[in-house]
Simulated scan of single mutants.
Amino acid sequence: MFYLFEGLVFTSVLVSILSLFFLLSSPVIEKEINFLELENTKAHLQNKLQESELLQLSRQIQPHFMFNTLNVILSLARLDRKNILVESIESFSKYLRYKYTDKKDLIPFHEELDQVKNYFYIQKLRFGKKLQISVQVEQSELTTGIPPYTLQILVENAFKHALEEKEGVMKLTIILQRIGNWVELRVIDNGDKQLDLQAEHGIGLENIRKRLNLIFDLFTEVSITRIKDEETVARVIWPYMIVED
């Protein structure tokens, strides 16, 4: 009987101690919950900030190509080359359609390449047979994910800062290659000058670098190298992944 009584007393004391413990610890639990809510809110705001910055960076790229295209169209109109003028306007309208379509952080490479081909069409109107373009991409790599306008920036920079001042044959080569878990994009031109990534006209390349850093937590690279004073290679490396249409 004594042991039963002792057990009841012990149980009562234990329950009281546990109750007191939970009462004292409840503010701590509440603080932990509030902390988690704060972290979730912070992460949400950071995502929104990144989305806003990505959109802003994308919009910085587009006007340059638009102005160049309008200059070509104006030149064709002055020369009264009506048939080619219509085709150039059609290519430009395809660009605008692409421009005003909402983009994801990554799109299939073939979509970006199709857009750049509209740019090539207009440049070929300007330079004719003097311009030689080569695209080296495996069929299986056409679904590789790429940040929108990445290829376009590299191509535009090659023309604006190198090829347009080139005397003789103008060569531009696009190479996309998967290397393990990464993908490497190279745009090679035979212009006489190398684009300086730190110079004012390297803003587009710095734009690529910033967007890659926003999208990926893994290794990325944007670089410019000159090969034997004959070719300039613009290289972009980012994590490989497949993006469906």
Rank of each mutant, 00 (worst) to 15 (best):
I174N: 02
F216K: 03
W182T: 12
I179Y: 12
E164A: 12
K129Y: 08
L76D: 02
K48D: 12
I227H: 08
L8I: 13
V137W: 00
L212N: 09
D192C: 09
G204K: 07
P63D: 08
N190C: 05
F159E: 12
S12Y: 09
K31T: 08
Y121T: 03
S140W: 00
L74K: 14
Q136A: 01
G180L: 11
R235C: 06
S19M: 04
S58A: 08
Q50A: 15
T150P: 02
I174C: 03
K104A: 14
N47E: 14
E206A: 06
I33T: 03
R226N: 12
V135K: 08
Y121I: 04
V236P: 11
F120W: 10
L163V: 06
P148R: 02
F92M: 15
D192H: 09
A162M: 11
E164V: 08
F159A: 09
V116K: 06
L38N: 06
E184T: 11
P148E: 04
V86Y: 14
L172V: 14
M170V: 12
T150A: 10
Y95P: 00
D196G: 06
P148W: 02
S12E: 04
K48T: 12
R226G: 05
D114M: 10
E200A: 12
I215P: 03
I84S: 12
E53I: 11
S12W: 10
